[in-house]
Design a protein around this nucleic acid. Sequence first.
DNA 1: AAAGACATGTAAGCCGTTACATGATTAA
DNA 2: TTAATCATGTAACGGCTTACATGTCTTT
Lengths: 184, 184
Amino acid sequence: MTAMDVILGLLHARPFTGYEIKHAFQAQFSYFFDASFGTIYPTLGKMEQLGYITKESIPQDNRPVKHVYSLTDKGREQFKNYLDSPLEAEAFRSDFLVRLVFGEHQKPDIVIRMIEDNIQAVRAKLSDLEEKKRLFCDGMSQTRQIVLNMGIETSKARLRVLEEGLSMLKANVAGDRRSGSERV
Amino acid sequence: MTAMDVILGLLHARPFTGYEIKHAFQAQFSYFFDASFGTIYPTLGKMEQLGYITKESIPQDNRPVKHVYSLTDKGREQFKNYLDSPLEAEAFRSDFLVRLVFGEHQKPDIVIRMIEDNIQAVRAKLSDLEEKKRLFCDGMSQTRQIVLNMGIETSKARLRVLEEGLSMLKANVAGDRRSGSERV
DNA sequence: AAAGACATGTAAGCCGTTACATGATTAA
DNA sequence: TTAATCATGTAACGGCTTACATGTCTTT
């Protein structure tokens, strides 16, 4: 699965500009896919050359020409090819979890701070997803609802584990400080 | 965070060969980090040149010479530099979720099949993590326990959502078939 | 005055994977 | 006999990010 496949999928709904595609990635897919402009614009160029999409150029005042891309039949077929291709393994890469695994080599205060920050970030993400559910759930396909629920429920699970772990760590640090075995 | 940083972290525990490092990544970190031999071996070479690790060569019968790498003080310092560097954002990339989001463009039977397969895979992963917890939890640092619990709890959450979603999808497909609106 | 939305694109380079190359031993 | 474990390495290539390049309008 490359950015091209996901763009092809997006364009099934309606025509998009590169700028809007980036926005859609961040708003809808960010927790399981993302791509930068440095990927999106050249990919759109390639897709046009391959005949998967057509470009409509709309002049604007004081702005670069806007390019709106629409899916062609050939693009629709290419998307089917993707759907028929073997499923790729998931890749999750977390600097946060790596640092947590090696937490014993870090000052407790810093680890605690890092976890607290992450809790805040996950809470924000969760509110965001919950609002999305509240607002748009009705108009969504069943499978999209599953994806949204998965974001919500895994965030909640993560939050529970982090909060429990945090209070245990804090209790430990407090105990260490009382018994004078504080780490430098 | 690159493969080098994670290798540096691993070597704090004991010396490793490249082969063992790969094994450790798969056994302990696979759900939030992984690297192939094509990354590990060249990285070890670079790390040795930089003085972060030292190599001990152990001849073997009918096998390539085994290279066991140990952390140096310079390597330990480099790891601290990593720990002091800004935390990188998490990157999760899931072909499975992309296909689910675009599930409306796929035959329901195939989507259902894909979800069932994923449920099996997550169940296997979960048993694996739960056994690890049962066996090794006592000897683990608190932060490692948090990471392990997170793997377990997010897997459970995912399973719940997937199972609920699956039964809803199935009910829908059955309903469609009865009313004759089956999709080709 | 600064930040963010709108809007497109290129170039350099990193980081990583896959496939290749080699080959013995042991268990199913 | 097939697969897995043990064991190391290289080369080609791909995909993506970052930084660069440009600029206006609107909101705070």
